[in-house]
Amino acid sequence: MPEDPKLHRPVARNEGTRLVGEPGGPGGPGGAGGVSRRSFIKTVGVSAAASSLAAAAQGAGVLGAHLDEPEAKGSGPAMLGPEAANITLNINGKSTPVRVEPATTLLEALRLHLSMTGAKEVCDRGACGACSVLVDGRLVTACMLLAVDCIGSKIVTVEGLASADGKLDPVQEMFIKHDALQCGFCTPGFVVASRALLNTTPKPTLTQIKRALSGNICRCGTYSNMFNAVLEASGQAPVMDQKGA
């Protein structure tokens, strides 16, 4: 059988986690939340003693490289694993308790344990963007993060983009208007990636839009409508609007 990527996760794969927000910039790191490298190593290291995460722990320097905020928030590093543990995640502004194994990804926590299925599992290895979520403002693929890695972080999923009274995010409204979806399975990922782009680049050019969405795949073939949707969501005229008739 082919090796399962989740059981033997090569450390370098975590470099696939996309970081759209520039450090210090809007939507970038340095905001609320975050897990320190120290707490991360402790968290993972304990579970690794008895699990296949040993390789990950040895490479924690690499793993933690994009998570190197100076200090942990909250009450200090938790000692978790190897059994399933109760953790609390901040998802869409709500404190959400969930019981996960140390090897559980954020995507599995959302989909399997919390019935939040907006983020889709498509490639399960950071190649398609269908499970894109925002973690402390940064665009990441939830299949490439451990749930325990997100303790103390602010997680925003596609379900959290509309306002509490149900008003859609402009990105969502424009995706509908421009028919930027067909089967819809990639759509939550593209919506979140588009929102992440607009958070850092309020008036993106078409080239910037193409680049920002290039971590995502749509199989039905809807990209040009997505470009139009993002342009109009950022208050710009759709480049490829209807001019016929």
């Binding site: 989909r111 399997l112 299925t117 596609v158 379900e159 969502q172 819809g184 939550p188």
Partner: peptide
């Protein structure tokens, strides 16, 4: 469209 852009649409794959 609204169900698909908000993640509310439940596909078979989502039925855990």
């Amino acid at each position: 469209g609204p169900a698909k852009v908000t993640g509310a649409a439940k596909y078979g794959r989502d039925m855990h």
